[in-house]
Protein backbone atom coordinates (compact mmCIF):
# COMPACT_ATOMS: atom_id res chain seq x y z
CA UNK A 1 0.00 0.00 0.00
CA UNK A 2 1.33 3.43 -0.86
CA UNK A 3 1.03 5.52 2.27
CA UNK A 4 2.36 8.76 0.85
CA UNK A 5 1.30 11.19 -1.84
CA UNK A 6 2.36 9.91 -5.21
CA UNK A 7 4.01 12.15 -7.70
CA UNK A 8 0.76 12.31 -9.66
CA UNK A 9 -1.04 13.52 -6.53
CA UNK A 10 1.49 16.28 -6.07
CA UNK A 11 -0.22 18.14 -8.89
CA UNK A 12 -3.11 18.72 -6.54
CA UNK A 13 -0.86 20.90 -4.43
CA UNK A 14 0.59 22.79 -7.31
CA UNK A 15 3.87 20.91 -7.10
CA UNK A 16 5.32 19.08 -10.01
CA UNK A 17 8.67 18.30 -11.36
CA UNK A 18 7.74 20.88 -13.96
CA UNK A 19 9.47 22.22 -16.99
CA UNK A 20 12.83 21.40 -15.54
CA UNK A 21 12.02 17.71 -15.36
CA UNK A 22 10.05 17.59 -18.57
CA UNK A 23 13.04 19.00 -20.37
CA UNK A 24 15.27 16.40 -18.89
CA UNK A 25 12.87 13.48 -19.05
CA UNK A 26 14.46 11.95 -22.11
CA UNK A 27 17.79 12.01 -20.30
CA UNK A 28 16.27 10.25 -17.31
CA UNK A 29 15.77 7.16 -19.36
CA UNK A 30 19.51 6.80 -19.57
CA UNK A 31 21.97 7.33 -16.75
CA UNK A 32 20.91 9.72 -14.05
CA UNK A 33 24.16 9.85 -12.13
CA UNK A 34 27.54 8.96 -13.59
CA UNK A 35 30.65 9.09 -11.47
CA UNK A 36 33.81 8.54 -13.47
CA UNK A 37 37.27 7.90 -12.01
CA UNK A 38 36.64 10.24 -9.07
CA UNK A 39 39.46 11.09 -6.70
CA UNK A 40 38.84 13.20 -3.61
CA UNK A 41 41.23 14.56 -1.00
CA UNK A 42 40.64 16.37 2.30
CA UNK A 43 42.74 18.49 4.63
CA UNK A 44 44.40 20.30 1.74
CA UNK A 45 45.50 17.09 0.15
CA UNK A 46 46.83 15.40 3.26
CA UNK A 47 44.41 12.48 2.97
CA UNK A 48 42.97 10.77 -0.08
CA UNK A 49 39.48 9.43 0.57
CA UNK A 50 38.22 8.38 -2.85
CA UNK A 51 40.48 7.24 -5.66
CA UNK A 52 39.38 5.96 -9.04
CA UNK A 53 35.75 5.73 -7.92
CA UNK A 54 33.24 4.76 -10.62
CA UNK A 55 29.48 4.42 -10.29
CA UNK A 56 26.49 4.59 -12.65
CA UNK A 57 22.95 4.96 -11.34
CA UNK A 58 20.18 4.90 -13.95
CA UNK A 59 16.84 6.60 -13.34
CA UNK A 60 14.39 4.35 -11.56
CA UNK A 61 17.07 2.37 -9.71
CA UNK A 62 18.08 2.22 -6.08
CA UNK A 63 21.74 1.51 -5.42
CA UNK A 64 23.18 0.75 -2.01
CA UNK A 65 26.71 1.64 -0.98
CA UNK A 66 28.00 -0.44 1.90
CA UNK A 67 31.40 -0.56 3.46
CA UNK A 68 33.44 -0.47 6.62
CA UNK A 69 33.96 2.60 8.79
CA UNK A 70 36.21 5.18 7.21
CA UNK A 71 35.76 3.83 3.71
CA UNK A 72 34.58 7.21 2.40
CA UNK A 73 30.83 6.64 2.24
CA UNK A 74 29.92 9.97 3.83
CA UNK A 75 32.61 11.71 1.79
CA UNK A 76 30.85 10.47 -1.32
CA UNK A 77 27.57 12.01 -0.14
CA UNK A 78 29.23 15.34 0.61
CA UNK A 79 31.08 15.48 -2.70
CA UNK A 80 27.84 14.83 -4.54
CA UNK A 81 26.05 17.62 -2.68
CA UNK A 82 28.87 20.17 -2.81
CA UNK A 83 30.12 20.55 0.72
CA UNK A 84 33.28 22.61 1.20
CA UNK A 85 36.45 20.88 2.30
CA UNK A 86 36.39 18.03 -0.20
CA UNK A 87 38.68 18.64 -3.14
CA UNK A 88 38.16 16.70 -6.34
CA UNK A 89 41.58 16.12 -7.87
CA UNK A 90 40.51 13.88 -10.72
CA UNK A 91 37.45 12.52 -12.47
CA UNK A 92 33.94 13.78 -13.11
CA UNK A 93 30.40 13.56 -11.81
CA UNK A 94 27.61 13.93 -14.33
CA UNK A 95 24.04 14.34 -13.17
CA UNK A 96 21.39 14.38 -15.88
CA UNK A 97 24.08 15.23 -18.40
CA UNK A 98 25.25 18.24 -16.41
CA UNK A 99 28.58 18.64 -14.66
CA UNK A 100 27.50 18.36 -11.04
CA UNK A 101 30.83 19.55 -9.67
CA UNK A 102 30.36 22.97 -11.29
CA UNK A 103 27.18 23.63 -9.34
CA UNK A 104 26.70 25.32 -5.96
CA UNK A 105 24.99 23.23 -3.24
CA UNK A 106 21.70 25.08 -3.66
CA UNK A 107 21.86 24.67 -7.45
CA UNK A 108 22.25 20.94 -6.97
CA UNK A 109 19.22 20.96 -4.67
CA UNK A 110 17.20 22.87 -7.27
CA UNK A 111 18.32 20.28 -9.84
CA UNK A 112 16.67 17.69 -7.61
CA UNK A 113 19.52 16.32 -5.53
CA UNK A 114 18.63 15.64 -1.89
CA UNK A 115 20.85 14.41 0.92
CA UNK A 116 19.33 12.80 3.97
CA UNK A 117 22.01 13.64 6.51
CA UNK A 118 23.59 11.11 8.82
CA UNK A 119 23.49 13.75 11.54
CA UNK A 120 20.72 16.25 10.75
CA UNK A 121 21.56 19.76 11.92
CA UNK A 122 19.65 21.72 14.54
CA UNK A 123 18.64 25.24 13.57
CA UNK A 124 17.67 27.24 16.69
CA UNK A 125 15.18 30.01 16.13
CA UNK A 126 13.96 28.81 12.74
CA UNK A 127 10.61 27.00 12.97
CA UNK A 128 10.46 23.77 10.98
CA UNK A 129 7.59 24.91 8.78
CA UNK A 130 9.23 28.26 8.05
CA UNK A 131 12.42 26.48 7.05
CA UNK A 132 10.63 24.03 4.80
CA UNK A 133 8.39 26.56 3.11
CA UNK A 134 11.42 28.74 2.45
CA UNK A 135 13.29 25.78 0.97
CA UNK A 136 10.39 24.56 -1.15
CA UNK A 137 9.59 28.00 -2.53
CA UNK A 138 13.26 28.75 -3.16
CA UNK A 139 13.45 25.62 -5.28
CA UNK A 140 10.19 26.37 -7.10
CA UNK A 141 11.29 29.96 -7.76
CA UNK A 142 14.68 28.84 -9.08
CA UNK A 143 12.92 26.45 -11.45
CA UNK A 144 10.69 29.24 -12.72
CA UNK A 145 7.63 27.68 -11.14
CA UNK A 146 4.92 29.30 -9.07
CA UNK A 147 5.56 29.39 -5.33
CA UNK A 148 3.22 27.57 -2.98
CA UNK A 149 0.87 29.74 -0.94
CA UNK A 150 0.89 29.42 2.84
CA UNK A 151 -2.49 27.60 3.01
CA UNK A 152 -1.53 25.15 0.26
CA UNK A 153 1.81 24.50 1.90
CA UNK A 154 0.18 23.91 5.27
CA UNK A 155 -2.33 21.52 3.76
CA UNK A 156 0.41 19.53 2.16
CA UNK A 157 2.70 19.60 5.22
CA UNK A 158 -0.07 18.40 7.51
CA UNK A 159 -0.93 15.57 5.14
CA UNK A 160 2.64 14.31 4.92
CA UNK A 161 3.19 14.74 8.67
CA UNK A 162 0.17 12.60 9.40
CA UNK A 163 1.48 9.77 7.24
CA UNK A 164 4.86 9.91 8.98
CA UNK A 165 3.21 10.10 12.41
CA UNK A 166 4.85 13.43 13.10
CA UNK A 167 2.97 15.47 15.69
CA UNK A 168 1.86 18.92 14.46
CA UNK A 169 3.58 20.52 17.47
CA UNK A 170 6.95 19.30 16.20
CA UNK A 171 6.48 21.33 13.04
CA UNK A 172 6.13 24.53 15.03
CA UNK A 173 9.35 23.96 16.95
CA UNK A 174 12.74 25.11 15.66
CA UNK A 175 14.07 22.56 13.18
CA UNK A 176 15.46 19.48 14.93
CA UNK A 177 16.02 21.37 18.21
CA UNK A 178 15.32 19.02 21.08
CA UNK A 179 14.37 16.20 18.71
CA UNK A 180 15.52 12.67 19.46
CA UNK A 181 17.80 10.91 16.98
CA UNK A 182 14.86 9.01 15.54
CA UNK A 183 12.74 12.15 15.27
CA UNK A 184 15.52 13.89 13.37
CA UNK A 185 15.75 11.04 10.88
CA UNK A 186 11.99 11.05 10.48
CA UNK A 187 12.17 14.79 9.85
CA UNK A 188 14.66 14.13 7.05
CA UNK A 189 12.14 11.84 5.39
CA UNK A 190 9.43 14.44 5.97
CA UNK A 191 11.55 16.99 4.11
CA UNK A 192 12.21 14.49 1.37
CA UNK A 193 8.52 13.85 0.85
CA UNK A 194 7.74 17.55 0.79
CA UNK A 195 10.52 18.53 -1.57
CA UNK A 196 10.08 15.52 -3.87
CA UNK A 197 13.66 15.44 -5.13
CA UNK A 198 14.63 13.65 -8.33
CA UNK A 199 17.69 11.97 -6.86
CA UNK A 200 18.06 10.99 -3.23
CA UNK A 201 21.23 10.26 -1.30
CA UNK A 202 20.61 8.72 2.11
CA UNK A 203 23.59 8.72 4.45
CA UNK A 204 23.09 6.09 7.14
CA UNK A 205 19.48 7.00 7.61
CA UNK A 206 18.93 3.78 9.57
CA UNK A 207 21.36 4.65 12.35
CA UNK A 208 19.58 5.62 15.54
CA UNK A 209 16.22 4.26 14.41
CA UNK A 210 14.21 1.68 16.31
CA UNK A 211 12.48 -1.02 14.31
CA UNK A 212 9.12 0.80 14.11
CA UNK A 213 10.73 4.04 13.03
CA UNK A 214 12.78 2.14 10.48
CA UNK A 215 9.61 0.77 8.95
CA UNK A 216 7.98 4.21 8.82
CA UNK A 217 11.07 5.68 7.20
CA UNK A 218 11.33 2.83 4.72
CA UNK A 219 7.66 3.20 3.78
CA UNK A 220 8.32 6.85 3.12
CA UNK A 221 11.28 6.14 0.91
CA UNK A 222 9.52 3.36 -0.96
CA UNK A 223 6.62 5.71 -1.67
CA UNK A 224 9.05 7.89 -3.58
CA UNK A 225 10.40 5.10 -5.76
CA UNK A 226 9.51 5.82 -9.34
CA UNK A 227 10.89 5.30 -12.85
CA UNK A 228 12.01 8.95 -12.89
CA UNK A 229 13.85 8.93 -9.60
CA UNK A 230 17.23 7.55 -8.58
CA UNK A 231 18.46 6.73 -5.09
CA UNK A 232 21.78 6.05 -3.45
CA UNK A 233 21.50 4.47 -0.03
CA UNK A 234 24.61 4.53 2.13
CA UNK A 235 24.48 2.13 5.02
CA UNK A 236 26.60 -0.07 7.25
CA UNK A 237 24.00 -2.74 7.74
CA UNK A 238 21.82 -4.94 5.64
CA UNK A 239 18.67 -4.47 7.74
CA UNK A 240 17.58 -1.23 5.99
CA UNK A 241 17.84 -3.07 2.69
CA UNK A 242 15.24 -5.58 3.91
CA UNK A 243 12.78 -2.72 3.73
CA UNK A 244 14.18 -0.76 0.81
CA UNK A 245 15.24 -3.41 -1.63
CA UNK A 246 18.01 -2.08 -3.89
CA UNK A 247 18.67 -2.92 -7.52
CA UNK A 248 22.38 -3.11 -6.85
CA UNK A 249 24.66 -3.29 -3.85
CA UNK A 250 28.22 -1.97 -3.97
CA UNK A 251 31.03 -2.33 -1.46
CA UNK A 252 33.15 0.78 -1.05
CA UNK A 253 36.66 -0.02 0.10
CA UNK A 254 40.06 1.44 -0.58
CA UNK A 255 38.46 4.54 -2.06
CA UNK A 256 36.65 2.73 -4.87
CA UNK A 257 33.93 0.20 -5.54
CA UNK A 258 35.54 -3.10 -4.65
CA UNK A 259 32.69 -5.38 -5.64
CA UNK A 260 29.04 -5.13 -6.68
CA UNK A 261 26.08 -7.47 -6.59
CA UNK A 262 22.30 -7.69 -6.50
CA UNK A 263 20.03 -7.26 -3.48
CA UNK A 264 20.90 -10.69 -2.12
CA UNK A 265 24.54 -9.72 -2.06
CA UNK A 266 23.83 -7.56 0.98
CA UNK A 267 22.93 -10.68 2.96
CA UNK A 268 26.12 -12.36 1.84
CA UNK A 269 28.04 -9.35 3.04
CA UNK A 270 26.29 -9.44 6.38
CA UNK A 271 27.36 -13.06 6.78
CA UNK A 272 30.91 -12.77 5.46
CA UNK A 273 31.87 -9.28 6.65
CA UNK A 274 33.61 -6.62 4.59
CA UNK A 275 37.13 -7.93 5.01
CA UNK A 276 36.62 -10.63 2.42
CA UNK A 277 35.87 -8.06 -0.24
CA UNK A 278 37.90 -5.11 0.94
CA UNK A 279 41.20 -6.93 1.01
Amino acid sequence: MQAFPKLSEAWEFGINLGKHDETLQSKDEALMLKINNLSVVVNNGEATILSGFNLDVPAGEVHAIMGPNGAGKSTLSYVLTGRDGYDVTEGSVTYRDENLLDMEPEERAVAGLFLSFQYPLEIPGVPTLTFLRTALNAQLRARGQEELSAPDFMKRARSVAKELRIKPDMLKRPLNVGFSGGEKKRMEIFQMLLLEPAFIVMDETDSGLDIDALRVVADGVNALRSPERGMLIITHYQRLLDYIVPNKVHVLAGGKIAVSGDADFARTLEADGYDTYAA
Binding site: P105, E106, G125, F131
Partner: peptide, 25 residues
Protein backbone atom coordinates in the same frame (compact mmCIF):
# COMPACT_ATOMS: atom_id res chain seq x y z
CA UNK B 1 29.14 26.50 8.29
CA UNK B 2 27.61 23.07 8.82
CA UNK B 3 24.17 24.59 9.32
CA UNK B 4 24.68 26.86 6.31
CA UNK B 5 25.50 23.85 4.16
CA UNK B 6 22.43 22.02 5.46
CA UNK B 7 20.21 24.96 4.45
CA UNK B 8 21.82 25.31 1.03
CA UNK B 9 21.43 21.58 0.48
CA UNK B 10 17.71 22.14 0.85
CA UNK B 11 17.80 24.75 -1.89
CA UNK B 12 17.95 27.94 0.17
CA UNK B 13 20.47 30.33 -1.44
CA UNK B 14 23.53 31.20 0.60
CA UNK B 15 22.61 34.85 1.23
CA UNK B 16 19.10 33.88 2.36
CA UNK B 17 20.49 31.13 4.58
CA UNK B 18 22.82 33.60 6.26
CA UNK B 19 20.07 36.16 6.82
CA UNK B 20 17.68 33.54 8.23
CA UNK B 21 20.27 32.31 10.69
CA UNK B 22 21.26 35.83 11.69
CA UNK B 23 17.66 36.90 12.20
CA UNK B 24 16.99 33.84 14.33
CA UNK B 25 20.07 34.64 16.40
Amino acid sequence: ENVLFYMRQRGIPQARSRSMLTEAF
